[in-house]
Every structure is written in structure tokens, then in C-alpha cells.
Design a binder for these strands. Structure first.
Lengths: 213, 213
DNA sequence: TTTGTAATTTAACAGCGTTAAGTTTCCTGC
DNA sequence: GCAGGAAACTTAACGCTGTTAAATTACAAA
């Protein structure tokens, strides 16, 4: 018994070592640029050793991604305290943008690529629970705004509105992550653009004549 | 001379054949899923034959992408006739969304991935010319809106406003292309969401009290 | 008919993620 | 203390990729 615990502890320590090395490399060079062989090299193991601890590269990356995404959930939970629905939307937007900047690789994986995750796995990922599901949190906030009569009368579908808001926020982050270094455009700062988008969207969705703070 | 022309014609025909086969495969299965070997197989040539006509896979894809993107430029040129600045913005948005739907692979390549294209190549791509440069066209429209006093007073930077509008439009397309099949979210239709985003953004950017059509 | 170049094929390389098989390590039960 | 055996790891290799080098074919020019 006691010895099994030791085994397990050691295994976990190696797992952690792999994750840390992988994280450092991925953060520095991105998902595609880092090979399994280089991760192995970094921890001075053979490449195949990784496969004892992780099913494949995809799984390894998802693990890191999961760590990151929990930081987004945390930020959202802190925001939940904000009483004003519009202000909450603004804070959601800012937190979302900050997440993209802080974890560009995870952001790309989560929101900019098609994932083959099956619906079955969703339950354990907190699907639908506001504390873990950012989209659910956004929808709930929109519902509140609708119920309080803050939005234009024709806006009755919370999913539609939430998706529009999400899209706007996503757009500014995604464009930044993909095109920030492209000199075709005289880029303005991400935060400035994000602020304008968030405010314009809220301003454009809110009930005509409704004056807010 | 006459024989050189014939040679050239034949070469161009093979080039075209490759491009057509590649396009069909790429459209059906996407950039990453299609290998050079499969393209070669489709035209019943050896894989290396392609490399006589195209430098590498990247170049081949860029060629297809260029063809697609000209359709966007065409759509924008048609829109240029629209006299009303806001209505022009709406049409730009719709055309942009339609481009994303019609050419998802090119869209992903152009707007959702980092490109290593150097600034030097931009001149021949029509950078800055409104007829070929969609961003320049958008900026020009924003400038017109500003000059005519249609936008809120504090909005004086056309690039900032253009980038906010672009981001909003991009967001809805990018999210759709990446997450459309993800059952985590009860997706609303792209066109409906796009329409809401475009209208909300314009509504949110326009001068307070300014009533439009 | 020879010659030279353009166009194509065959063979192969280096890199990738990954798997199979062999080896070390080290706890367990006698 | 030592045999057995699972756990953790390494070595070797597979199949796939984009791509290149070298050999081959096709075919107009002389």
C-alpha cells in the first residue's frame, strides 16, 4: 500500500515534469513547432517515455489547455459578483480578451480550430454549469439583461445575442492572434480595439433611449 | 517560336489540371487533410511532377487562395456603388461573411493563421489600392462616415473603427468555421448572427440620436 | 539520326507521431 | 537473500509526410 503510493507519487512527478517542459516549449514556439522528440530531449528522456504517461500529443496538449482554461473559469467566477448586467458583460469581454493574450496557444486550440471532442466527454467538462461553462455564464447574463428590459425589444433570443457578443469578442482576439504581425494593416492596440467593440456592441444592443451610468 | 508557344500552352494546361484537382480535394477535405501524393494520384501523375509546376505545397495553396480572394475584391467593387455609408458597411459585412462561407479554406488561411508573407510582396498584391485591398476599402468607408458626421464624436480614428468593425465581422465567421459542429453551444444560424452583429455595431458606433432610414 | 532540353518518374531523405519489442529497475512473496 | 513480475523506460522501427537528387522519357531542332 505505502509503496504503491510512492510509485504513484513518482509517476505523478514525471508527468508534471513532462507537462512543465512541454508547456515551456509550447508557449515559446507554439503547438505545431514543438515535437515530441524535443519535449523528451528537454526532460532528458527518450521520446517514447512520454507515451507511457500520455496517450498521444493531442492528449498532452489538451491537458495543458485544460489548466489554462480553468483560469478563464476563475476569472468569470470573480465577475459573477458584479451586479450590473452591462458592466458584467464588459468584464466578461475583458477577461476573455485577456485570456487570449495570456494563453494564445490554448486560445487557438479552443476557439480557432475544429475539435473532434465528442458530446459524451462534455458532461465531465462542466457543460452547462455556470461555474465552469463560460458560454453558459454569458447566456445567463444576457437572459438577465433581457428580463430587466435592458435590451432592444426585438432581442428575445438569449443564445442569438450571446453568440453575437461572443463573436465580437472572439473576432478581436482571433484577428490579433493571427494577424498582429501582418504589416498590411496599421494595427491599433488590442485593448483599445476590444474596448471599442465591447462598448459598441452593448451600446448597439441596448434599448433605445436607455441611458446607462 | 511557334513551338515554344505550344510548349508553354501545354505546361499551362498541366498547371491548371493540378490546380483543379487540388482545389477539388482541398474544398472537400481541407488543407491539412490532403497530401501532395493524393493530388498527384488524382491527376495520374507522380507526386514529384507537381514540384515542376509549383515550388511547394504552400505555393500551390496560395495560388488557389489568390483566385478565391479575387472574388471578395469583386464583391467589394460592386458594393462601392452604394451611396449610403452605413448601408455600404452592412453590405461589406455581408459580402465578407459570404466569402467565409463560400471559401472556408481560403478564409482560414488568409485570416485565421499567421502568414509568413513579407512586406516586400505586398506591392503586387494591391496593398492600399481600394479596388484590390478590402481593408483599404473598409477604412475609406469609415472615413466617409466620420467626415459626414455619422459616427459618435469621440470616434476620430478610422483605423480603430475599421478594425473594430472588421473584428466583429471576422468573429462571427471565424467562430462559425471553427466551432459550427461543436454541440457545446446551441448555435444560431450564421446569417442571423452576422446580421445582428453588423447592425448592432453600426447602431453602437453611430452618433447618438442619429436616426437612420 | 543525333543532340539537348523540357517534363516526368523512380528512389530516396529527413522529419514527424507513434508502436512493438526488448531492457532495466525495483518492489513483492517466499 | 533471492526468484518472480510488474512498472518504467530505451532502442528499433513503422508508416506517413513534404521534398530533393538522380535517372529516364519525350520530343523539337540541327
Amino acid at each position: 500500500m505505502g509503496i504503491n503510493e510512492r510509485r504513484e507519487r513518482e509517476r505523478k512527478s514525471v508527468r508534471k515534469k513532462i507537462l512543465e517542459a512541454a508547456r515551456e516549449l509550447f508557449v515559446a514556439e507554439g503547438y505545431d513547432a514543438v515535437t515530441m522528440r524535443r519535449i523528451a530531449e528537454a526532460i532528458e528522456y527518450s521520446p517514447t517515455a512520454i507515451y507511457f504517461h500520455f496517450k498521444d500529443k493531442e492528449t498532452l496538449i489538451r491537458e495543458l489547455c485544460k489548466e489554462d482554461s480553468s483560469s478563464l473559469a476563475k476569472a468569470f467566477n470573480a465577475i459573477a459578483k458584479e451586479p450590473d448586467a452591462f458592466e458584467r458583460l464588459r468584464k466578461i469581454g475583458r477577461a476573455y480578451v485577456e485570456f487570449g493574450v495570456r494563453h494564445p496557444n490554448s486560445y487557438r486550440l479552443m476557439f480557432m480550430t475544429q475539435s473532434k471532442i465528442k458530446e459524451d466527454d462534455y458532461a465531465e467538462m462542466g457543460h452547462g454549469k455556470q461555474e465552469e461553462d463560460g458560454y453558459a455564464f454569458l447566456v445567463a447574463t444576457v437572459i438577465e439583461a433581457i428580463d430587466k428590459g435592458l435590451l432592444r425589444q426585438e432581442l428575445m433570443d438569449p443564445h442569438l445575442v450571446a453568440q453575437a457578443i461572443w463573436s465580437a469578442g472572439h473576432g478581436v482576439v482571433a484577428l490579433h492572434l493571427a494577424k498582429r504581425d501582418d504589416p498590411w494593416v496599421e494595427w491599433r492596440s488590442l485593448t483599445e480595439t476590444a474596448e471599442l467593440i465591447i462598448n459598441s456592441m452593448i451600446n448597439g444592443l441596448k434599448r433605445e433611449g436607455f441611458t446607462h451610468d
